[in-house]
């Protein structure tokens, strides 16, 4: 979970949603693997320096989305269903690309131009 902590919060957005996003990214990257136990609410609250109720709300949201499950008295665990993780990965990819396209359109940049620039930058970085 160390990587989850690497960035700070954007305080203009609900904190619990950002914790949800941090956990999702950790699952996609494989920092959290299927069946892994999440830190306890209290542990994560102390690590992130947020109110434990905020962490609790984030954990409830993750469970509602089927990404985690609780075992009574043992805590919260990452789903063991690979299809759910795959679905999340696909959703996050699409969201990212939609955001990029949206931002590009705000400076009148077409998708074709976006792809062209992406390739240019990739070539620059490769060389």
């Amino acid at each position: 979970m160390t990587l989850i902590l690497s960035d700070r919060f954007d305080e203009n957005r609900p904190i619990y949603l950002q914790i949800v996003e941090k956990v999702k990214r950790a699952i996609i990257r494989g920092d959290l693997k299927p069946g892994d136990r999440l830190p306890s609410v209290r542990e994560l609250a102390i690590m992130l320096r947020v109110n434990p109720n905020t962490v609790q709300r984030a954990y409830q949201e993750l469970e509602r989305e089927g990404l985690t499950f609780t075992r009574r008295g043992q805590g919260n665990f990452v789903t063991q269903d690979p299809a759910v993780v795959e679905e999340l990965r696909e959703k996050m990819r699409r969201e990212l690309v939609r955001r990029v396209i949206q931002e590009a359109s705000e400076i009148n940049m077409s998708v074709d131009e976006l792809i062209k620039t992406l390739e240019e930058i990739r070539n620059e970085q490769a060389s």
Binding site: E11, R13, I15, Y16, L48, R49, V50, N51, T54
Partner: peptide, 27 residues
């Protein structure tokens, strides 16, 4: 205390200006 509060009550000159759940107010 930004990340510590569940709920906030803004007081001004002895009156409540605004109150609510912190994350909902952010939204």
């Amino acid at each position: 205390v930004e990340n510590l509060l569940d709920r906030v009550v803004f007081l001004s000159d002895g009156s409540v200006l605004l109150q609510g759940n912190a994350d909902e107010l952010r939204s």
